[in-house]
Design a protein around this nucleic acid. Structure first.
Lengths: 340, 340
DNA sequence: GGCGCCACCCAAAGCGCTTTGAGAAACGCC
DNA sequence: GGCGTTTCTCAAAGCGCTTTGGGTGGCGCC
């Protein structure tokens, strides 16, 4: 069923039918009514490609996930982010298209996304500190919003980020205030911007209290459970083990907890743990009784907001870049306690 | 840059340029060479909408996630599945389009996906035991592959599934062989087909040894960490607590482990746990030293294979439905031991 | 009755590509 | 040199939609 057939069925021109369906005023209410009913009855919906070709809009948003040998963005965050964004999109009649792009041919990939024209804008995931994609997309004139920031990029661009620095500063201070002096950082990969910021904030908070950084207490890897376990196990075996852990994700913190248990220690009493919590749907940090003391910031909410920003950008291409910084809340769970 | 401009630039007709780019034999190698170089230099890539309109193929695959109030498919599995499928797609030049559809207007949604024509086929996620989508899609003539099965649907259709029944039967028998008699099932939602099969297999294995089902030891909910924790905590507080747990996902098993620890028990000694393990990238069950005894089946691999099946179906529309059953392997970790 | 004005409606062009049906150029053969 | 083939190239139609630039009929008004 296409427009032409529908028009013939109704004994109307394609123009009139199209106008009726798209809410143009040049058509009488009676006609519009008739057209809408027929469309529903005959189960007509316009061909997206043809519509896109004619209007120049794809009504789709691209989510580009960089992949490389060292690192892969398909992580637990992504599902929740998409779920949030998807909610916003579907209200606005937009679709999500996902591209996995190898960062070897990143430039080529973005250019081709641009000229293939099947998305009206894109969300950039996993920004590095110095991320070439921002300049590239700006040059290409394709609307985009970065989930996160790129510290070393000075161009103006639209982004939405959690205040990772502030969050980790507060978390570090929280442990310091409890009397901890040996505080470990089990961080994500530090060429990722968010992890870099956390690292810097942690360092600054310690320096503020005159505590020197100990490289033996700092790790930076992909945030898996096993990584948390291994790191914590090794650190707890040191002559001078940490009494507090700052961890970059719930999954990793679960690994840390496992190591603590295996060492015969109790979390919250012998060893304190604070983690960042993205508030993932299936991995709730117990909203009533938090398991972990955590810096919480909903990634699903971030998805919704980033999507709104992007749609806004698409509708008003002339608009200046939008930015939004979300504060994480520090929630107190039972994984922290005074230093022994 | 579009075809016309490229053709003008080369002083050729659009036809010739198009043929050169798409590898048709009617164009000389010399010309083709020239065209390809120009395309690369000028960063031309064809407009996907126009191409799709002309060819009738979208070069995109839809992944449809049902959402409802009671249940939401955006779960940890999804990221890995897409990562696997995406690998196959990008090799074949296909994109992924994600639609979140509310199951209230499911029928409408699938019909509209069909007629909007921006995907060539779809992967159906999260099949229920009696899933209306299968009949609907068959009727619509849209190629599709189901990730999982629908037990109560008798139509032939293409699917790829893990042998959940066999896996949970083996797991149950494994615990029985270790002497466990009170075995709990912390299952997923049992209107989901995979969970139903697990439930049936668990029941059958117990019945085989003449053990009656105890409703107090059976749960069926969304597979979160908190659910695992709460269920296990409650069961361990029973007068006659279980000595073995069969759990439907790693995340939930982590919750179970937490409850066991909090009860002052040790997993693998006082209480045994077997979980299903989807082999998620960021939540590895320790490939060298498994944390949990588990039935393992890579969901990423499932994604790759399902994608291949679908592409096959798209290329040969006349082909009979394809089916593929993946066996899970039972890996022995340290979370199980003889019943006390 | 003739005029202008709305309210409706339509034919046709155009979006960027593929593909058909045919023409020109080059070649070998007698 | 003329013929049939092969090789290369082209103009134009068509995919399903939107949108421009008119038309047509009915109404009130003088």
């Amino acid at each position: 069923m296409n427009l032409k057939q529908l028009a013939e069925h109704l004994n109307l021109s394609q123009t009139t039918v199209s106008r009726a369906l798209n809410g143009y005023p040049e058509v009488s209410e009676k006609t519009r009514e008739k057209v809408l009913r027929a469309a529903r009855d005959l189960n007509y919906s316009p061909n997206a490609r043809a519509k896109g070709l004619a209007t120049g809009r794809a009504h789709a948003i691209g989510h580009v996930l960089p992949i490389s040998d060292q690192h892969e963005m398909v992580n637990p965050i992504f599902g929740d982010f998409i779920a949030g964004a998807g909610q916003t999109y579907s209200k606005a009649g937009y679709e999500v298209v996902i591209s996995l792009v190898d960062d070897k041919d990143e430039e080529q990939a973005y250019r081709s996304i641009r000229s293939r024209g099947n998305v009206d804008g894109i969300i950039v995931h996993g920004p590095r500190m110095t991320d070439g994609r921002i300049a590239l997309l700006t040059e290409l004139g394709l609307p985009f919003v970065v989930h996160g920031r790129a510290s070393k990029v000075s161009l103006p661009y639209s982004w939405l980020d959690t205040n990772n620095g502030r969050a980790f500063q507060r978390a570090t201070e929280f442990l310091l205030d409890l009397g901890h002096r040996r505080i470990a950082l089990i961080n994500g990969l530090e060429f990722m911007d968010f992890a870099h910021r956390r690292r810097v904030a942690y360092g600054a908070a310690l320096a503020d209290r005159g505590i020197a950084l100990d490289p033996a207490l700092m790790r930076s890897e992909e945030m898996t459970e096993v990584y948390g376990y291994r790191s914590a196990a090794e650190m707890l075996a040191l002559d001078n083990p940490p009494t507090g852990f700052l961890v970059s994700s719930m999954i990793t913190a679960i690994g840390v907890r496992r190591a603590i248990h295996e060492a015969g220690l109790e979390m919250g009493r012998d060893v304190s743990v604070i983690t960042h919590d993205d508030d993932l749907g299936y991995l709730r940090n117990g909203h009533d009784v938090p398991i972990f003391t955590a810096t919480r910031s909903s990634v699903r909410l971030a998805g919704m907001r980033a999507a709104e920003m992007l749609l806004d950008l698409i509708r008003n291409p002339a608009r200046a870049p939008l930015t939004q910084l979300m504060e994480a809340e520090l929630i107190i769970g039972s994984s922290t306690g005074p230093a022994q």
